[in-house]
Simulated scan of single mutants.
Amino acid sequence: MKFAHLAQRLFNVPLAIHPAKAEVIMASLAERLGVTHIAHAGPAEAGAWDDDDDYYNRQGDNPRAGYDLLGSAAVIPIRGTLVQRLGTLRPYSGMTGYDGIRQNFLMAMSDPKVEAIVLDIDSPGGEVSGCFDLVDAIYNARGEKPIWAILNESAYSAAYAIASAADQITVPRTGGTGSIGVIWMHMDWSKALAEGGFKVTFITHGECKADGHPEIPLSKEARERFQADIDAMGDLFVRTVARNRGLSEKVVRGTQARTYLGAEGISLGLADRVAAPDAAFLALLQQLAAN
């Protein structure tokens, strides 16, 4: 029943994720979201978007850390869909947890062998919950050690929010930045339930208590209220990126959650230079050696 767990993380919650990625996930789950699969996932079902990504789950040189120390730079991998709590220090099964990124970042900041931190990012974004607290923690650590976001290949939405907190962002020619926005997808299961012979009755205290549940259609009033929440989160996203990148809120808001390829993002101030990941990492090591 892992697909029920995935559906609960995808639908009826605010996401800072590239729309194309959301569509891919929705398509992959569509055949599995029949009435017979509507259930609540237990702890053992917390799992995967896919099952073939073990590379970043290795232990590295320091079994207590989820980052690799290459030269004097700590490389923190940020891969796949971003979630609030994953319970591992490295990306696992196509996901990375904000909890793991935070712990890795704090360990690297306090590690005397680490002179610089690389956020090695290739992610379409993910959950809003937990994202901006992590972004603030990275931003507030600026000046202690160099922090570079090296995109390998893209950083969209929540992943871009994280990248924007770094001192410098490099992006490959074919990589991307942007998607500064929030999306909320309401899954209405009411027709499927009715066709399956099910009728759900909510007994609530408070007339808005059941708003947003997938078992019932979304009312006009509930939609307006949720839109206000999404707008508030979007405004937070805009303010955060504007602060991190030294841009005006008008410029950031004017992107309207568009994505930008390579040098196009640099022209807007969303990244600093075009560079292949290995070239960007070498430039950082050279900078450290020169200092």
Rank of each mutant, 00 (worst) to 15 (best):
E249G: 04
V13D: 09
R9L: 11
G181H: 02
T204C: 00
N12E: 06
A116Q: 06
T240M: 04
T36F: 14
P91F: 01
R64V: 05
G42M: 14
D52M: 13
L86E: 06
S157K: 12
D54W: 14
Y67L: 07
S28I: 10
W148K: 12
M107E: 12
L29H: 10
V200S: 02
L282A: 12
R239K: 14
S72K: 15
R79N: 14
A39C: 13
R245Y: 07
V182K: 01
I230W: 09
D52P: 11
R223E: 14
G176L: 11
M1W: 03
L33W: 13
L236Q: 10
L151D: 06
R90W: 06
Y98N: 03
S190T: 08
S190W: 07
S248P: 04
L134R: 09
K250T: 14
D68P: 01
G97D: 03
K209C: 00
T259L: 00
V251S: 11
F237N: 10
D211K: 00
A141G: 05
N62E: 03
D136L: 04
L119R: 01
S28Y: 09
P217I: 03
T88P: 05
I101W: 13
V274N: 10
R90L: 06
K21G: 13
I147K: 13
L247H: 10
V200A: 00
E224M: 14
L247V: 10
G71P: 07
L33Q: 14
G87V: 02
E264R: 07
V75Y: 14
Q84N: 14
A149C: 12
G97S: 06
G262E: 08
H40F: 15
E153V: 15
N140F: 10
H5Y: 14
D136C: 02
G80K: 03
T259K: 12
T81N: 12
I101V: 11
G80L: 06
A165I: 03
S179F: 06
A222T: 00
Q287T: 09
V83H: 11
A7W: 07
G143W: 05
L106C: 01
G97T: 06
G130P: 00
S110W: 00
A65K: 04
R258H: 11
I147C: 09
D52K: 13
A166Y: 05
S123D: 03
G97K: 09
L236T: 11
A222K: 01
A74W: 12
V182N: 04
A22Q: 15
L15N: 08
L82A: 08
R173L: 03
R79K: 12
A4V: 11
T96V: 02
G100W: 09
V13S: 05
